[in-house]
Design a protein around this nucleic acid. Structure first.
Lengths: 184, 184
DNA sequence: GCTGAACCATAGCGTTGCTATGGCATGATG
DNA sequence: CATCATGCCATAGCAACGCTATGGTTCAGC
């Protein structure tokens, strides 16, 4: 189900780089600091990736496109994604993670303003639901529990279901979401 | 965001038990074998917990009740849940995990047979979507990213959205799902 | 040219998972 | 009853781990 990986050791990392183990301590503050830096880099890249998703006049499509970018980013660097959600180190600065999440909230808010969603819809709640569902799917795929082929259809269906439940028209919603996955 | 935990060491485990480190090797085959046994135990308990959820004449309610049992099981033993989806060890026997998942598939299939869902609905696909979304929510809660209070409302909404998208009546679906969460 | 700070290579400490070895039970066999 | 074989565990020790102490090197500023 899950494959065991050889551990990342400090000595193995510096081997061949010409540097000694001490450099890791002066620059990152030991192994926990290195893990924090890796996680930070992961969230920074993710935020940059989501920030590059253009805003169109179809906010539902944009919300799905953010999900596509999220999934692509995770599948291109599975180890980085695993490290981002590994609890071996703290995350010093949550600004990058918050920035990434705010993109989702913004898309949900715009979808509501466009009249696609019920006026009573809370953008943060909807964004959290989309994120959690996408995170679950991506995690299972990255861990090898689910095959990668099922990600797109399952994510499409779940995203469309959540947005339709939030008030969007079923057919129009599905079209927007599928267009995002086809473009990504 | 995520809290660093002190590592589980072999010597610390046997300390105070009167046993030596050697017993771990004769019984479990070292540290990887111990992790595998822990994961196995986790999935076995989860399967037993889901098997104890009674089948009623409302399969949609049963599907949601399985999700409630899943979440309760994870939140009562967060470390065990983390270990179950930690990739540090292989899972020798997937029978328990499959049995747990089959309960979800069974509930989805019964909901379709009851006429609650579209005839074209694939029970496995729906079960996978529900599982992945629930796993994402539970994982984020267990890791401390999301507060525990939001689990029930978010899970309720996501489950109802998926089942409604699969063809169930929105109001009736929501009532069944909320009843499951209220009972759990 | 001198000084001070920043940086890193080396050596070593305590701890980790793991293995080799020997002692101690228990049970079958003659 | 004596003997041997087998399974199990405590002890000791090994290689490797993360980490720290220390001393050497480099380079800017006066």
């Amino acid at each position: 189900m899950l494959a065991a990986r050889e551990p990342v050791t400090l000595r193995a990392l510096v081997e061949g780089t010409g540097a000694s183990t001490m450099a890791v301590y002066t620059h990152f503050g030991g192994m926990p600091g290195l893990w924090s830096a890796v996680r930070q880099e992961g969230f920074t890249r993710l935020a940059a990736r989501l920030a590059a998703v253009p805003r169109t006049d179809d906010a539902v499509h944009d919300l799905a496109a953010l999900g596509v970018a999220y999934a692509r980013s995770a599948l291109e660097h599975p180890e980085l994604y695993r490290a981002m959600f590994d609890a071996r180190a703290d995350l010093a600065d949550e600004a990058a993670a918050d920035a990434a999440f705010d993109r989702l909230v913004d898309a949900a808010a715009r979808a509501r303003e466009e009249g696609r969603l019920d006026p009573g819809t809370d953008p943060r709640t909807l964004a959290t639901q989309v994120w959690a569902a996408g995170h679950g799917l991506v995690s299972l795929v990255v861990q090898g529990v689910l095959p990668a082929e099922v990600l797109a259809p399952l994510a499409t269906g779940t995203t469309a279901a959540l947005l339709t439940a939030a008030g969007d028209d079923a057919g129009r919603c599905r079209a927007s979401v599928e267009r995002a996955w086809a473009a990504g």
